[in-house]
């Protein structure tokens, strides 16, 4: 599975998204667009990303732009896993 597949799987799991009704693309918006996306969901996503990719995300690295859309989460994980 590619990084983007793994990230999408985590987003679908945590946010309980119906991908049959709305397939995910990099441009699918997240924060501010989904009623499910609250701070509890954001923390659950960060924790799942840490577990899945064995990375540690420092709070200083977090800002709203990471959760803008699916592609921005994937880009964040790619930055984290290549540094």
């Amino acid at each position: 599975m590619t990084i983007s597949d793994q990230v999408e799987r985590i987003l679908v799991e945590v946010l309980d998204l119906d991908t049959a009704a709305m397939p995910l693309t990099a441009a699918t918006p997240l924060a501010g667009h989904l009623p499910e996306f609250d701070s509890m969901a954001a923390v659950a996503i960060l924790t799942a990303l840490e577990d899945q990719f064995q990375i540690i995300i420092d709070d200083d690295e977090i800002d709203a732009s990471i959760f803008e859309n699916v592609g921005s989460v994937v880009a964040f994980v790619m930055r984290k896993t290549t540094t």
Binding site: A42, V43, T47, D59, I62, D63, A64, F67
Partner: peptide, 20 residues
């Protein structure tokens, strides 16, 4: 730590900076 993060993350998403 995940519970404390509820606060730091929601602050960060709102553009305020507070660290763990």
């Amino acid at each position: 730590r995940a519970f404390l993060r509820l606060r730091t993350v929601s602050d960060r998403l709102a553009g305020r900076a507070e660290s763990m």
